[in-house]
Amino acid sequence: QPKKFCDYCKCWIADNRPSVEFHERGKNHKENVAKR
Protein backbone atom coordinates (compact mmCIF):
# COMPACT_ATOMS: atom_id res chain seq x y z
CA GLN A 1 0.00 0.00 0.00
CA PRO A 2 1.75 3.22 -1.10
CA LYS A 3 1.77 6.08 1.36
CA LYS A 4 1.40 9.80 0.78
CA PHE A 5 3.06 12.34 3.06
CA CYS A 6 0.95 15.27 4.22
CA ASP A 7 3.35 18.20 4.42
CA TYR A 8 0.92 20.24 6.50
CA CYS A 9 0.38 17.60 9.18
CA LYS A 10 3.77 15.88 8.88
CA CYS A 11 2.06 12.52 8.74
CA TRP A 12 1.67 9.64 6.31
CA ILE A 13 -1.70 8.60 4.91
CA ALA A 14 -2.73 5.82 2.56
CA ASP A 15 -2.38 7.03 -1.03
CA ASN A 16 -5.92 6.48 -2.23
CA ARG A 17 -8.72 8.94 -2.89
CA PRO A 18 -11.03 8.13 0.06
CA SER A 19 -8.21 8.26 2.62
CA VAL A 20 -6.74 11.46 1.20
CA GLU A 21 -10.15 13.15 1.00
CA PHE A 22 -11.03 12.06 4.52
CA HIS A 23 -7.72 13.38 5.82
CA GLU A 24 -8.01 16.71 4.01
CA ARG A 25 -11.55 17.24 5.34
CA GLY A 26 -10.32 16.64 8.89
CA LYS A 27 -10.26 19.44 11.45
CA ASN A 28 -6.59 18.88 12.28
CA HIS A 29 -5.52 19.19 8.63
CA LYS A 30 -7.62 22.32 8.04
CA GLU A 31 -6.12 23.99 11.12
CA ASN A 32 -2.61 23.18 9.92
CA VAL A 33 -3.38 24.58 6.46
CA ALA A 34 -4.83 27.77 8.00
CA LYS A 35 -1.67 28.21 10.09
CA ARG A 36 0.53 28.29 6.97
Rank of each mutant, 00 (worst) to 15 (best):
residue 1 Q to T: 03
residue 1 Q to G: 02
residue 1 Q to W: 00
residue 1 Q to H: 06
residue 1 Q to I: 15
residue 1 Q to P: 12
residue 1 Q to Y: 04
residue 1 Q to E: 00
residue 2 P to K: 15
residue 2 P to W: 01
residue 2 P to G: 14
residue 2 P to E: 14
residue 2 P to L: 13
residue 2 P to T: 14
residue 2 P to I: 13
residue 3 K to R: 13
residue 3 K to S: 10
residue 3 K to P: 09
residue 3 K to G: 11
residue 3 K to F: 00
residue 3 K to A: 08
residue 3 K to E: 15
residue 3 K to L: 08
residue 3 K to V: 06
residue 3 K to N: 01
residue 4 K to R: 04
residue 4 K to C: 03
residue 4 K to P: 00
residue 4 K to D: 02
residue 4 K to W: 00
residue 4 K to S: 07
residue 4 K to G: 03
residue 4 K to I: 07
residue 4 K to N: 07
residue 4 K to L: 04
residue 5 F to P: 02
residue 5 F to Q: 05
residue 5 F to W: 00
residue 5 F to G: 01
residue 5 F to V: 02
residue 5 F to S: 03
residue 6 C to D: 00
residue 6 C to W: 00
residue 6 C to N: 00
residue 6 C to G: 00
residue 6 C to K: 07
residue 6 C to S: 01
residue 7 D to E: 13
residue 7 D to R: 05
residue 7 D to M: 07
residue 7 D to G: 08
residue 7 D to Q: 10
residue 7 D to P: 02
residue 7 D to A: 08
residue 8 Y to C: 06
residue 8 Y to L: 06
residue 8 Y to T: 11
residue 8 Y to P: 15
residue 8 Y to W: 09
residue 8 Y to G: 07
residue 8 Y to K: 05
residue 8 Y to D: 14
residue 8 Y to M: 13
residue 8 Y to R: 09
residue 9 C to W: 00
residue 9 C to S: 10
residue 9 C to K: 00
residue 9 C to T: 01
residue 9 C to E: 01
residue 9 C to Q: 01
residue 9 C to A: 01
residue 9 C to D: 02
residue 10 K to V: 02
residue 10 K to H: 12
residue 10 K to D: 14
residue 10 K to W: 01
residue 10 K to A: 09
residue 10 K to Q: 09
residue 10 K to P: 03
residue 10 K to N: 09
residue 10 K to T: 05
residue 11 C to L: 11
residue 11 C to H: 05
residue 11 C to R: 11
residue 11 C to G: 11
residue 11 C to A: 13
residue 11 C to I: 12
residue 11 C to F: 04
residue 11 C to V: 14
residue 12 W to I: 15
residue 12 W to L: 10
residue 12 W to F: 08
residue 12 W to C: 04
residue 12 W to D: 07
residue 12 W to A: 07
residue 12 W to M: 14
residue 12 W to V: 06
residue 12 W to S: 06
residue 12 W to H: 15
residue 12 W to E: 07
residue 12 W to G: 05
residue 13 I to K: 00
residue 13 I to T: 06
residue 13 I to E: 07
residue 13 I to W: 02
residue 13 I to H: 04
residue 13 I to N: 05
residue 13 I to Y: 15
residue 13 I to P: 03
residue 13 I to L: 07
residue 13 I to Q: 02
residue 13 I to R: 02
residue 13 I to A: 02
residue 13 I to M: 15
residue 14 A to T: 11
residue 14 A to M: 01
residue 14 A to Q: 06
residue 14 A to S: 05
residue 14 A to L: 02
residue 14 A to E: 11
residue 14 A to D: 07
residue 14 A to I: 11
residue 14 A to F: 01
residue 15 D to N: 06
residue 15 D to S: 07
residue 15 D to C: 03
residue 15 D to R: 05
residue 15 D to T: 11
residue 15 D to L: 05
residue 15 D to M: 09
residue 15 D to Q: 06
residue 15 D to F: 07
residue 16 N to V: 09
residue 16 N to S: 08
residue 16 N to Y: 11
residue 16 N to K: 14
residue 16 N to H: 10
residue 16 N to L: 08
residue 16 N to F: 09
residue 16 N to A: 14
residue 16 N to E: 13
residue 17 R to P: 15
residue 17 R to Y: 07
residue 17 R to V: 13
residue 17 R to Q: 12
residue 17 R to H: 09
residue 17 R to G: 12
residue 17 R to S: 13
residue 17 R to E: 12
residue 17 R to T: 12
residue 17 R to A: 13
residue 17 R to L: 12
residue 17 R to M: 15
residue 17 R to C: 14
residue 18 P to I: 04
residue 18 P to W: 03
residue 18 P to T: 04
residue 18 P to R: 09
residue 18 P to M: 12
residue 18 P to Q: 09
residue 18 P to V: 08
residue 18 P to D: 04
residue 19 S to Y: 03
residue 19 S to E: 06
residue 19 S to R: 02
residue 19 S to V: 03
residue 19 S to L: 03
residue 19 S to G: 05
residue 19 S to D: 09
residue 19 S to K: 04
residue 19 S to P: 01
residue 20 V to R: 07
residue 20 V to L: 05
residue 20 V to S: 05
residue 20 V to F: 04
residue 20 V to K: 02
residue 20 V to D: 02
residue 20 V to Y: 01
residue 20 V to Q: 06
residue 20 V to I: 06
residue 21 E to A: 08
residue 21 E to L: 08
residue 21 E to I: 01
residue 21 E to G: 07
residue 21 E to H: 03
residue 21 E to D: 09
residue 21 E to W: 05
residue 21 E to N: 05
residue 21 E to V: 06
residue 22 F to W: 10
residue 22 F to Y: 07
residue 22 F to E: 14
residue 22 F to V: 14
residue 22 F to D: 14
residue 22 F to T: 15
residue 22 F to K: 09
residue 22 F to I: 05
residue 22 F to Q: 15
residue 22 F to H: 09
residue 22 F to M: 15
residue 22 F to C: 14
residue 22 F to G: 14
residue 23 H to G: 01
residue 23 H to R: 01
residue 23 H to M: 02
residue 23 H to I: 00
residue 23 H to P: 03
residue 23 H to K: 04
residue 23 H to L: 00
residue 23 H to S: 02
residue 23 H to Q: 02
residue 24 E to F: 08
residue 24 E to D: 04
residue 24 E to V: 01
residue 24 E to W: 04
residue 24 E to L: 01
residue 24 E to A: 05
residue 25 R to S: 11
residue 25 R to F: 08
residue 25 R to T: 13
residue 25 R to L: 10
residue 25 R to G: 13
residue 25 R to A: 14
residue 25 R to I: 06
residue 25 R to K: 12
residue 25 R to W: 05
residue 26 G to H: 14
residue 26 G to D: 13
residue 26 G to E: 15
residue 26 G to K: 06
residue 26 G to P: 02
residue 26 G to R: 07
residue 26 G to L: 06
residue 26 G to A: 11
residue 26 G to I: 00
residue 27 K to S: 09
residue 27 K to G: 10
residue 27 K to R: 11
residue 27 K to W: 07
residue 27 K to V: 09
residue 27 K to C: 05
residue 27 K to Q: 12
residue 28 N to K: 15
residue 28 N to R: 15
residue 28 N to A: 15
residue 28 N to C: 10
residue 28 N to E: 12
residue 29 H to M: 03
residue 29 H to C: 03
residue 29 H to Y: 01
residue 29 H to G: 01
residue 29 H to F: 00
residue 29 H to P: 00
residue 29 H to D: 00
residue 29 H to V: 05
residue 29 H to R: 01
residue 29 H to N: 03
residue 30 K to Y: 04
residue 30 K to A: 10
residue 30 K to V: 12
residue 30 K to I: 14
residue 30 K to H: 00
residue 30 K to L: 11
residue 30 K to D: 06
residue 30 K to S: 10
residue 31 E to Q: 11
residue 31 E to G: 09
residue 31 E to V: 10
residue 31 E to D: 10
residue 31 E to P: 05
residue 31 E to T: 06
residue 32 N to L: 08
residue 32 N to T: 09
residue 32 N to H: 08
residue 32 N to Y: 06
residue 32 N to F: 04
residue 32 N to R: 10
residue 32 N to V: 05
residue 32 N to I: 03
residue 32 N to P: 03
residue 32 N to G: 11
residue 33 V to M: 11
residue 33 V to C: 10
residue 33 V to D: 07
residue 33 V to L: 07
residue 33 V to E: 13
residue 33 V to G: 07
residue 33 V to P: 05
residue 33 V to I: 04
residue 33 V to A: 12
residue 33 V to F: 08
residue 33 V to W: 06
residue 34 A to C: 09
residue 34 A to R: 10
residue 34 A to Q: 06
residue 34 A to S: 14
residue 34 A to P: 05
residue 34 A to G: 12
residue 35 K to R: 12
residue 35 K to G: 12
residue 35 K to S: 12
residue 35 K to W: 13
residue 35 K to T: 11
residue 35 K to V: 09
residue 35 K to M: 10
residue 35 K to N: 10
residue 36 R to M: 06
residue 36 R to E: 15
residue 36 R to P: 15
residue 36 R to V: 12
residue 36 R to W: 06
